[in-house]
Simulated scan of single mutants.
Amino acid sequence: MNISIYCGSQTGKNPVYIEKAKELGEQLAKAEIGIVYGGSNIGLMGAIADQALLHGGRVIGIMPEHLQKREVAHLHLTEIYIVDSMHTRKAKMADLADAYIALPGGCGTLDEYFEIFTWAQIGLHTKPVILYNINGFYDALILHFEKMLDDGFIREEQRSILQVATSVDDIFNILSANHDEIIKVANLTK
């Protein structure tokens, strides 16, 4: 099983973001769940990859050629794919994943999250799409989902795609509810 992780190439100003990214990387590795991510060794991206690798995890990076020059590619991953574009990166991450988690990040993180959310909304996949709402980072976005629902721009069944976690335990509970095989590995982390 693999999970695509979308997160910042920066660490953010509050140390809780990097702390929680590392915790997630460690717990996914211990549960033998692979990470698919953007392939960078900086920011939250690098932190989650390093922590998973430190604990024997499987980490697959997908990095577009043009970013390889700006975001230093992680040199110690299980696998790394250098691809031709951001579009190819997102498609490859989607193909390799059984679920998707967005940690705090900037516009790129939101772009990746909303594309995979939209794919679920229009029926291209039924995999879990999780916002990891560390330190209330996504509170305003969650409220905006309610506004979209209230104003008739999404339907209740589309709103139900939004799954929010505030802890690693929440993430494993969401994954367990969606994938029987995760129930077994999630118990290893307890």
Score class of each variant (00 low, 15 high):
185 V>L: 05
181 E>R: 06
166 T>D: 13
133 N>R: 11
169 D>S: 14
171 I>N: 03
71 E>L: 06
30 K>G: 03
173 N>A: 12
180 D>H: 07
2 N>K: 12
134 I>R: 01
10 Q>L: 04
128 P>C: 13
103 L>Q: 13
169 D>E: 12
151 D>N: 11
79 E>N: 13
35 I>W: 00
80 I>Q: 14
121 Q>W: 01
46 G>W: 11
76 H>S: 12
129 V>E: 13
17 Y>M: 14
116 I>E: 01
140 A>M: 06
32 E>R: 15
132 Y>H: 07
150 D>H: 11
68 Q>S: 11
146 E>L: 01
106 G>H: 14
184 K>P: 01
95 D>N: 08
142 I>R: 11
120 A>W: 03
83 V>R: 01
126 T>S: 15
39 G>S: 10
19 E>R: 15
25 G>Q: 11
49 A>E: 08
173 N>S: 13
184 K>I: 13
156 E>S: 10
159 R>T: 02
7 C>G: 10
131 L>V: 09
157 E>W: 00
69 K>I: 03
24 L>I: 05
37 Y>D: 13
130 I>H: 01
147 K>Y: 04
57 G>H: 06
190 K>G: 02
190 K>V: 07
166 T>V: 08
163 Q>E: 11
161 I>A: 02
39 G>Y: 11
105 G>Q: 10
133 N>V: 07
173 N>P: 00
76 H>N: 14
190 K>C: 00
117 F>T: 02
25 G>E: 11
147 K>V: 15
26 E>H: 05
9 S>Q: 10
15 P>K: 12
170 D>I: 12
104 P>T: 14
108 G>N: 15
46 G>S: 07
162 L>T: 01
143 L>M: 13
3 I>L: 10
177 A>D: 13
125 H>F: 00
102 A>C: 02
88 T>I: 12
135 N>T: 06
44 L>G: 05
109 T>S: 14
46 G>H: 09
94 A>I: 03
22 K>I: 09
134 I>S: 01
177 A>K: 15
57 G>A: 07
180 D>V: 10
170 D>Y: 04
75 L>F: 01
41 N>C: 13
39 G>Q: 08
126 T>L: 09
136 G>D: 08
132 Y>C: 07
59 V>C: 10
37 Y>T: 08
24 L>M: 12
46 G>N: 08
158 Q>T: 08
98 D>H: 10
181 E>W: 04
80 I>H: 12
145 F>K: 02
54 L>S: 09
77 L>R: 08
87 H>S: 07
55 H>D: 04
57 G>D: 01
158 Q>N: 06
84 D>P: 03
123 G>A: 09
148 M>T: 07
143 L>E: 15
165 A>N: 03
135 N>H: 14
106 G>F: 14
21 A>I: 07
4 S>K: 00
2 N>D: 12
41 N>P: 01
54 L>K: 13
46 G>V: 01
26 E>L: 07
150 D>C: 02
180 D>R: 11
111 D>K: 06
